[in-house]
Every structure is written in C-alpha cells, then in structure tokens.
Computed example of a mutant assay.
Amino acid sequence: MRLEGSPARISVVVLTYNRADQVLDTLARLAALPDRVHIVAVDNASTDGTAARIAARFPFVELVVAPANLGAAGRNLGVARVRTEYVAFCDDDVWWSAGSLSRAVEILDAAPRVAVLNARVVVGAQGAVDETCERMRESPLRSAALPAPALIGYMAGACVFRTDVFRQVGGYEPRLFIGGEETLVSLDVLSAGYEMIYIEELVIHHHPSALRDSAQRRRLLARNAAWVAWMRLPLPEALSATLDALQTMLTERSPLRDVPLLIASIAWALSKRRVIGERVRSMRQLVLDDDARREAETDEPRPFRSTRIE
C-alpha cells in the first residue's frame, strides 16, 4: 500500500479522437479511482471541442494536444509527459477497475523480466470477457519463472508498461497509424529480452463506441501486418502477409487506393528490417501451432496475435 500523499508510481495515458462525451466519462471514472495515478489525456487533434472540454472539466489532468491525428503514435506524446516508473494505457471508451493499477505496480515490482502486463477486458454492461483475453489465458507459453502465462502480443488499450521499456523500443511507429500497431512493439519488446504476460486479476472495462469504420480497420490491419512482416519476420512470412493484405484490399474493393501505398512502402519497411531471433521465432511458433490445433478441434478460426481494443 502506498502512503496517503506519496507520489504516484504509475500514470495512465488516455488516447482520444472526436469522442468528447466518451473521454469525459472515462476521465471521470479514472479520477475516481482509489489508486494513486497521474492521468495524461492525449487529444489527437479532435475537431469536436474535446481538448477544451477536458481542460474545463479536469484541470488536474495533464492534457496533450497533438498537432494532427497521429493515430496510435499519439500515445508517444503522452508517454513523453510521464514521470512515473510504470505507465498504463486506455482508450476513450475504456477504463481501469479500482485497485488494478496498484496491483500492476506490485506485480511489476516483483517481476523485473516482465515489461508488459495485459489486463482482462470485460465488455459492455454484461461484462463478457473479450475473446482475445480468453485466448491469452490459454497461452501455451508457460514458465515457472513467470507469475502468469506469457504472450507474444498485447492489447494497446488494456496494458501496463515499464515506461523505460516503452521508450527503449521507440513506442508506436507513426506510419502504421492504427491497426495492429502493437505487433511491432511486441516483437521489439521480446527481442530486447523482456516478457509480456496476461494478468487475469487486472480488470479493464470496455464499452465500445459506435463511432468507428470497421472496413477501414480491416484494411489497415492487413496493410500494417504486411509492413511489420517486412520489418521483422522471415521472408516467407513477409510474402504471405503481403498476399493476405492484397486479398483484403480486393475484398474491401479498395485496391486502387491501398495497393500502391502498400507496395511503395515495402522499401521503407525494408530500411527498418531487423529479423527477430530464434527465441522470439520459437515463441511465435508455439502459439501458432497451438492456434492451429485448437482450430482443428473446433473447426473455427481462432486468431491469436496482437489486438487493439476498438
């Protein structure tokens, strides 16, 4: 337990864009937590008056206004303002449960090899557990040296980081914008020798906003998966991810808009190429093999990569 009046050891970075009502509700819930936290709100250049409303209602929240909509990289601006050892993230339609952030500090204090904690996400008023979290709970990556199942990916809006590790790997790549942006960070965290784990007792609530473009998200996910594969994965996987992206763009009827950018940016991705080592390849293969086994048993696709709360 932290003594009353002692400085916060964990910050929360909240990312928002044009969802003023949702982010005000989220900030109110975070401000009411018993946990001692420093709150940073990053407004991704909203056009609906979000920044002014945050400043008026929550003067104690550190407000950062991005110069443009940076997508996931807006979180980097928030982390630049963080002065605590640990940093939690959530989006504007997501909030942490009471006690979870204090418990995250205790877990990270006791596990120096662990750099990222993924919380259990409960969705909507009924509190159903997010399917990705169910898969994380079943992760085949188990070790007596870790307090919980290890992961190869995490959810950007439901995680806690060691602040220095987030900075060490460079945060989110601006060019990816949004859609599977966690994958590159995950691979770099693991390549640096750290672990990511799923912690069931950490709870975060997600009440999905209706303000989203699902078709655009599918296209960005596919495009970014291809770019990340060229940056970090072996050649066969890079080629496969590119073919998958092309197929998605054809399915979404957006090839004239998306394919030239996808292909033209492969050269950029190759300029950043650092293929993952044997340890990370082995971890990924164990998870992929486990996914394939479960899919064969259920006759249903069971994707388990990195996922973002939408």
Rank of each mutant, 00 (worst) to 15 (best):
residue 54 I to F: 01
residue 42 V to N: 03
residue 178 I to G: 01
residue 250 L to Y: 04
residue 113 R to H: 06
residue 248 T to A: 07
residue 228 V to K: 12
residue 295 E to R: 09
residue 139 S to F: 00
residue 210 A to S: 14
residue 53 R to N: 02
residue 215 A to S: 11
residue 298 T to V: 11
residue 113 R to Q: 13
residue 105 V to S: 06
residue 20 A to T: 15
residue 190 L to F: 04
residue 81 R to S: 06
residue 49 G to F: 06
residue 147 P to R: 02
residue 71 G to T: 01
residue 233 L to S: 14
residue 155 M to I: 12
residue 197 I to S: 04
residue 142 R to G: 03
residue 78 G to D: 01
residue 259 V to L: 04
residue 167 R to P: 13
residue 295 E to G: 09
residue 165 V to W: 07
residue 282 S to T: 11
residue 226 A to D: 14
residue 82 V to N: 01
residue 51 A to Q: 01
residue 296 A to V: 12
residue 56 A to D: 14
residue 124 G to V: 02
residue 31 A to N: 08
residue 40 V to Y: 02
residue 51 A to F: 00
residue 163 T to I: 04
residue 125 A to Q: 06
residue 23 V to L: 09
residue 177 F to N: 03
residue 67 P to N: 12
residue 87 V to W: 05
residue 29 R to S: 06
residue 297 E to R: 15
residue 132 T to G: 05
residue 47 T to W: 00
residue 86 Y to A: 05
residue 102 S to V: 00
residue 207 H to R: 14
residue 228 V to G: 10
residue 298 T to Q: 12
residue 302 R to T: 11
residue 269 A to Y: 07
residue 257 R to I: 07
residue 102 S to K: 00
residue 263 I to F: 14
residue 232 R to M: 13
residue 5 G to S: 10
residue 107 I to L: 09
residue 103 R to Q: 10
residue 98 A to L: 08
residue 49 G to S: 04
residue 289 D to P: 08
residue 52 A to S: 07
residue 35 D to F: 00
residue 153 G to Q: 07
residue 153 G to N: 06
residue 266 I to L: 15
residue 197 I to Q: 02
residue 180 G to A: 09
residue 109 D to L: 05
residue 255 P to Q: 05
residue 235 L to D: 15
residue 166 F to H: 06
residue 284 R to T: 07
residue 37 V to E: 03
residue 146 L to E: 06
residue 99 G to C: 02
residue 15 L to V: 13
residue 140 P to H: 03
residue 143 S to T: 06
residue 136 M to A: 11
residue 297 E to V: 07
residue 196 M to I: 01
residue 175 R to Q: 05
residue 280 V to Q: 10
residue 132 T to P: 00
residue 189 V to G: 04
residue 149 P to I: 09
residue 96 W to R: 13
residue 71 G to V: 00
residue 203 V to T: 14
residue 178 I to K: 03
residue 50 T to F: 03
residue 204 I to M: 10
residue 201 E to C: 05
residue 31 A to T: 11
residue 17 Y to E: 03
residue 303 P to T: 09
residue 124 G to C: 02
residue 99 G to Y: 02
residue 212 R to I: 08
residue 100 S to F: 08
residue 291 D to K: 08
residue 189 V to R: 02
residue 114 V to E: 02
residue 218 R to M: 06
residue 240 S to M: 12
residue 224 N to E: 13
residue 249 M to C: 12
residue 261 L to R: 12
residue 89 F to D: 01
